[in-house]
Design a protein around this nucleic acid. Structure first.
Lengths: 167, 167
DNA sequence: TAAGATTGATAAATCAATCTTA
DNA sequence: TAAGATTGATTTATCAATCTTA
């Protein structure tokens, strides 16, 4: 409020809002990224010699609907060659299988196996476990956070685990 | 409330709190990671042919206090050899310089140059700019988010940009 | 020709030697 | 011997051919 005359972003409200948004972004990014870096979420994957990219690949597969590799690359926001590599590893472990598409023989689709669907479920459940640090907040704070975070716009696509490469 | 008798996490309060925390974690992680993946924050770095790891390295340097490479590896939670590589690139661009420590000639410290300090400031400022999506929330929501996020415990160390490698 | 998947080349990370100084 | 930095080997990503089918 004391900076009213220093603002050049427009009226006081706008300046203040941007500042608060900056604080929120810094706090949220710091917390999330330092938690992700701890990597507890990826234990199960590492046991299998897989990377966070493989989790992302599993996450965008649907047990009932084999998905073309090209569509996976789009969903993962990564290069087609990376999908080749990811699917190679997943196939070696018996989590997915490639199928040829009868209607267009250029296309290969990727289908989850039963093992793959089970592993996918376990690893996603583990991923979604809230970090201990969050539980140090009281119930009312958590409710409030949920309420406001729910208002954020959806990011387009299904890229919430970061690039296939990111960890 | 309808699940009271299914809970095995203890009293209803505990079960409910963990569930809410899970929602918060999912919402927060999804938002943060999809924003980071867009990579707008790293434009300035890419122009210089540098990676998010280099930003992290710059971020933990202090213009007034050269830092031993070993201490950087600790701060960055990465291998010493990665620090060698990061500092090589930063030195090529004139952003830092290696110095030998007179009191222990095994140690090399890394000092920001004037150019490095200026670049560090620009790039951090850019990084801290809140994403547009956050500004779609109203001022009251943002204030509430800030208030509650501020209660989160500090992550130990200064690793908030993720591993030196992560993007 | 172009679309879709793969292979090969390079970049950026981790892990295991190596080399210098304490 | 051990600590600190570097170099080399391997893994995981990106970018540029290549190979097959439409």
């Amino acid at each position: 409020m004391t900076m009213k005359y220093l603002s050049y972003d427009g009226p006081m409200g706008a300046r203040s809002k941007r500042t608060v948004a900056g604080d929120v972004w810094r706090l949220m990014a710091r917390f999330t990224l330092s938690q992700v870096q701890r990597g507890d979420q990826f234990e199960l994957l590492r046991e299998q010699g897989l990377t966070p990219g493989h989790l992302k690949a599993l996450a965008i597969l649907d047990a009932d609907a084999p998905r073309p590799m090209g569509a996976m690359a789009e969903g993962l926001r990564c290069d087609a060659s990376q999908v080749t590599w990811l699917v190679d590893r997943l196939e070696e472990r018996g989590f997915v299988e490639r199928r040829s598409l009868a209607t267009d023989r250029r296309v290969k689709t990727v289908a989850l196996t039963d093992d793959g669907a089970a592993f996918r479920a376990r690893v996603l459940e583990h991923l979604y476990e809230p970090p201990e640090a969050l539980l140090s907040l009281d119930a009312a704070s958590l409710e409030s956070l949920r309420e406001h975070l729910e208002r954020l716009p959806e990011s387009d696509g299904d890229t919430w685990l970061g690039s296939a490469a990111a960890r």
